[in-house]
Simulated assay, not measured.
Amino acid sequence: MRGLTKRLWIGLIVWIALMDSVDAKMSPKEEAYFDYYRIALQMMKTKVEDVPNTGDVTLDFLYEMIPLHEASIAMCENIMRFSDHSEVKQIAKRIVHNELIELDKMKVLLEETKEHPHIELEKEEAYLEVYKDSFQQMVDKMERAKTKGDINQHFLEEMISLHEGAVEMEITILQFTNNRELRRIARTMLVGQKTQLIQMQRVMKMIE
């Protein structure tokens, strides 16, 4: 716990140091929005860094994807708190609705799978190599997102990056897991997130 807290504080200090890179001076509302976004992103990174390598790719994926869903929900709740853009708020609301359902399913499957893990170390090694690359690319994109004076545009940019990363991870786990329930969950998430990506990209073009 102390290690997690220390890394969280270090991450927040880094975020504060990066404040100078924001394009324009932020209003109090923008500052509040970005403060919460930074905390949610850092919490996601810290939780993912702490997930165990279990030897079972199904368990690995669940441990990795749960923090992503938690962060996505937190970021959507954040934009709903501060945005006046009706379409952006509707997108965020749908994402929260879908991901709360998926989160519950993943947590149930996690507890069930922990009782009887299917250990395949060579498969896990191959899976983790692909997964870690996808996760790092996703985080890099989310950290590069800037305000440009519009929290709605920033939200769409961050959430598009998060969804694109999640889609890659879901495609990857479908190539590696034989767990039927996880395959059902991953396919459902894949369809939903691809649909949401199209919606977000459309609204992003309207805002730009």
Rank of each mutant, 00 (worst) to 15 (best):
H154V: 01
M65W: 02
M75I: 01
F155C: 00
V96L: 05
A166I: 09
K45A: 13
G11N: 13
I95V: 15
I66F: 07
L62E: 03
A71H: 00
M75H: 00
K146D: 00
N178V: 14
Q90T: 14
L4S: 12
D20Y: 08
L68G: 08
F135Q: 13
S86M: 13
L128G: 02
E157M: 03
Q199R: 13
I207C: 10
H116N: 15
T188Y: 06
A74T: 12
K6I: 11
D150H: 02
L197F: 12
M43R: 07
H97S: 14
K105E: 14
D23N: 12
H154S: 05
L103W: 05
Y33P: 01
N178W: 07
P28C: 09
M1R: 08
I79T: 02
E208T: 12
A32K: 06
V108N: 14
C76T: 02
L62T: 03
L59Q: 04
F61P: 02
S21Y: 10
Q136C: 08
S83L: 06
H97G: 07
M138T: 11
D133N: 15
L110K: 14
M1F: 12
D50Y: 10
E129V: 10
Y131Q: 05
H163A: 14
P28I: 10
K45D: 06
V130N: 08
G165C: 13
E158K: 05
S86T: 13
K105D: 13
V14C: 13
I151M: 10
I101G: 05
W15C: 03
S134P: 02
I39Q: 02
V96S: 06
Y36P: 01
L12H: 09
I73T: 03
Q42R: 12
V203M: 08
E49H: 12
I198D: 15
G11Q: 05
S86I: 11
E87R: 08
C76S: 12
Q199H: 14
F61E: 07
M206G: 05
A71W: 00
S134M: 09
E115Y: 06
P67H: 03
K205Y: 08
A40H: 00
R184W: 09
F135N: 03
I119D: 13
L109H: 05
H85A: 09
L41C: 03
E112G: 05
V191C: 06
K45M: 13
L121P: 07
D56T: 08
V48L: 08
S134K: 07
I173V: 15
V191L: 11
H85F: 08
E70N: 09
S27I: 09
I39T: 04
I95W: 02
V88T: 08
K25P: 03
L110R: 07
L4A: 10
